Computed example of a mutant assay.
Amino acid sequence: MVVACHCEGRGWRFWGESDLKSKFWGRSIQLDPVGTLTLEFDDGEIFQWSKVLGGVQDINGKTVASLFGKWDDSMHYKINGDSRNANGSEPHLLWKRSKPSKHLTRYNLTRFAITLNELTPELKEKLSSTDSRLRPDQRCLENGEYTKANEEKLRLEQRQRQARKMQERGWKPRWFVKEKGGETYSYIGGYWEAKERGNWESCPDIFGQVSTDQNFD
């Protein structure tokens, strides 16, 4: 599965894609994240990095800082030394994982993670039909409807198998296009306009009922 994203804000744009290369070693599995992330500012300054990020280089390719930490705990950076300061600076904290709430949730999610999955009536009106927050199996599980959640999970898996066969016939991403001769996906526009109008007719109904009048065998 390849994930592509595009974000815009006041004075900046961020885009990139992420993929996983996996290897099975018998008793363990190795997952290597690949892809390039780009951050561009209106003044023309551009930052690019790949996963896993371990150092920062200047325009001449010299490593001027090192990054280290754990993705689920914290991340630090350290400015590399020069002839006057061989050891460089002391480590500085970039970010640290928030502690779970005293009142633990079923999945031990942080407050930020819980808000990402929150779905209000006002927000639901602005979401595309493909937004993951609309997954019926996920909602049933969160509501404690375990039997129904499993039924919905099996139904969606069947629908995914059907969609995979359709993709083999020439399916293309709706909001992104793969650049020729590379693995980079570029945003082609249209998403924010569709959100503004509340018109998602061009999006597939990925959570709906499985069609029984099509044969893909």
Rank of each mutant, 00 (worst) to 15 (best):
M1P: 10
V3F: 07
A4C: 14
H6L: 08
C7G: 06
G9W: 01
G11N: 09
W12K: 01
W12G: 00
R13N: 05
R13T: 11
F14R: 00
F14Y: 07
G16Y: 01
S22C: 14
K23E: 12
F24S: 08
G26F: 01
R27E: 11
S28V: 09
L31F: 15
D32I: 15
V34K: 05
V34A: 08
G35I: 08
T36G: 03
T36A: 09
D43Y: 07
E45N: 05
S50T: 09
L53V: 12
G54V: 15
V56K: 08
Q57H: 14
I59G: 07
K62V: 07
S66F: 00
G69L: 01
W71N: 14
W71F: 15
H76R: 12
K78W: 03
I79P: 00
N80H: 08
N80Q: 11
G81E: 13
R84F: 09
N87K: 06
E90Y: 06
L94S: 03
W95L: 04
K96C: 06
R97L: 12
P100E: 00
S101W: 00
S101T: 07
H103W: 07
T105G: 10
R106A: 15
F112C: 02
E118N: 06
T120I: 03
T120W: 02
P121E: 10
E122V: 09
K124S: 14
E125V: 09
E125D: 12
K126F: 03
K126W: 01
L127S: 00
S129G: 11
S129Y: 09
T130H: 06
L134M: 08
R135E: 06
D137T: 02
C140P: 00
L141E: 06
E142F: 08
N143Y: 08
N143H: 11
N143T: 04
G144W: 01
G144N: 05
E145I: 05
N150P: 00
E152I: 01
L154M: 14
R161K: 12
R161N: 13
K165P: 02
M166A: 06
Q167A: 14
G170V: 10
W171L: 11
P173W: 08
R174L: 13
K180F: 04
K180G: 01
T184I: 15
T184Q: 15
T184M: 11
S186A: 15
I188R: 15
G190N: 10
Y191P: 02
Y191M: 06
E193V: 03
E193N: 05
E196M: 04
N199L: 04
N199S: 09
S202C: 13
S202Q: 14
C203S: 10
C203H: 12
G208L: 05
G208Q: 11
V210L: 15
V210D: 09
V210H: 04
V210N: 10
T212H: 14
T212D: 10
N215P: 10
N215M: 11
F216E: 07
D217H: 12
